[in-house]
Structures are given as structure tokens and as C-alpha cells.
Design a protein around this nucleic acid. Sequence first.
DNA 1: AACACGTCCTGAGCGC
DNA 2: TGCGCTCAGGACGTGT
Length: 276
Amino acid sequence: MPELPEVETVAKALNRDLVGRIMDSASAISKLRLPFEADETTARLRGRRVRSVRRRAKYLIVDFEDADCVALMIHLGMTGSLRVEAADIARHPHDRAALLFADGDELRFSDARRFGFMQLIDLPCRDGLPAALDKLGPEPLERRFTGDTLAVRAAGRSCAVKVFVMDQSVVVGVGNIYASEALHAAGVDPRRSAASLSAEEWGAVVREIKAVLRRAIKSGGSTIRDYRGVDGSEGRFQRELRIYGKAGKPCPVCGSDIETVRLGGRSTFYCRRCQT
DNA sequence: AACACGTCCTGAGCGC
DNA sequence: TGCGCTCAGGACGTGT
């Protein structure tokens, strides 16, 4: 399930592979739950050169030269992946959409569970972001994202701290895997209410969110099951996960059994002894 | 406003 | 072997 490190890894790869290519046409291989207007995309982007690929939260935004008010926005959902390969190579069974470039290569969007999407979006200005992303919170790796800012936001919030840090209007990019990992590293019980954390605890949570995301980016993200890089490779950070998916196994810090609980409808992993 | 919960979707894993 | 069931979850919508 792609979170910030996985989307960042894909964005970096696409900046190497896609920038400078000239768009030819778009095709929707399956329209089901993929709000992708292939004909309009072709009409508005044919002949345009890819200028850059950006990441905002878990969204990818492909910008084109001389197309200042329109861009392509992609969300990988849970099982989405992108590949760049020659158009004459056989497509995969879960390929949903493709962008053909003038050089004969295609960007292919594959998504088994169809939670992802790829859509043409209007931008308010060059380098702007679509209005749909207005409600997103700060990027966790920005300097201005601090424990103090979270402590202020958390005042009066009764929801579980894990649910709170996964709220994309609070901070973006933190999903189920890295939320569990960061709270374990910070020693904070994920079931506690957001309002109950001290300023020091928020400092630790923010520090560990930044640390785990940075380390995961360096490892090319985590492949639990479906995630793949643009070249088809798996991430390497799953080997370094300390708590996510480890129910019943010993905590790497104290050896206690790792426990699991559902918070906000998501599996949550924690150590009763290390996280208080 | 905040929060709980339902919805979308299908492959993997499991019990029988 | 194969069937049917449950689980996985990011974003969004709805009801309270």
C-alpha cells in the first residue's frame, strides 16, 4: 500500500524516465472506477512534453510544458503501480490506463483493486495544485512540521493518536504502516486519545515520523505485497519494519509479544510494554 | 466540527 | 482440488 516513501520513490523514478518525453495519446483500458477521460486527455496533452513529476501527499502530478493549466494527477490507491515500457510489450491483466509517448513507449497504470485513479486536472496556475488537494495538511518532511504544530491541532481531539496522524488534513503521507512504526519508535500507545499526548510526546512522534519516512525513502519504500517501483523492483524497507505485520512476534526492543488492535478500521500493531 | 462507520474492489490465504 | 469465506485498506460520503 503506497504511502509517502513509495509515492516519493515512484516520483523520483518518473522524473528520470518520463521528463522530456512527448505525449501522443491516452487510452483507458478499463473505465470501471477510474475517472480517466482518455479522449480529453489526448486532446489536451498530445504533442506536449513532460516537464516534471511532482509528489504532493500520496498524489503524483505530471506537469507538461506549455500546458500551464492542466496536468495529470495519479493516486496509486492500495495496489496501483506504474511502469514505462515499449508499447508492443504485452500489457498486464490489471493494467487500467496507458499514456503513449511519441517514442513508442507507454506509461502503464496497473491496479488490481481499483482504489487508485488517474485523471486530468485543472491547475489554478503553473506549478499550482488542483483545488481537490486544498484540504491536505503539511508535508511531514518539511521543517515547519513540528511537534508543537501537532500538539495545537490535537487539542480537544478524542480520536486515537494513530487515527489522528493518519488524517491527511493533519499531516499527509502517513498511512497504516508508517503510523504504527513511528508510534512504536516514539513509545506512544496508538490507542491513546490525541489530546492526551504531552508536548514532549508530540515532539517524539513527529521526530519518529520524519525518521521512519526518511529511512523508508532511502530503501525505496516497503513492498508488503503489491507495491512495485517503476522498474518493477520491490522496496527494501519491509525488511526493516519493526512492528507492522508482526502480531505475536517479539518486540525488537523488549521481547514482549506484539499485539494488534483495530483503530479507525485499520489493523494496528503495538507493544504493550514499550508504548505507554 | 468531530467522529464512527459504510462503501468501493479483488487477490491472497485459509478452513473444510 | 476447489469452493466459499474473510481480510486487507486510502479516500470519500453519510449519519449522528
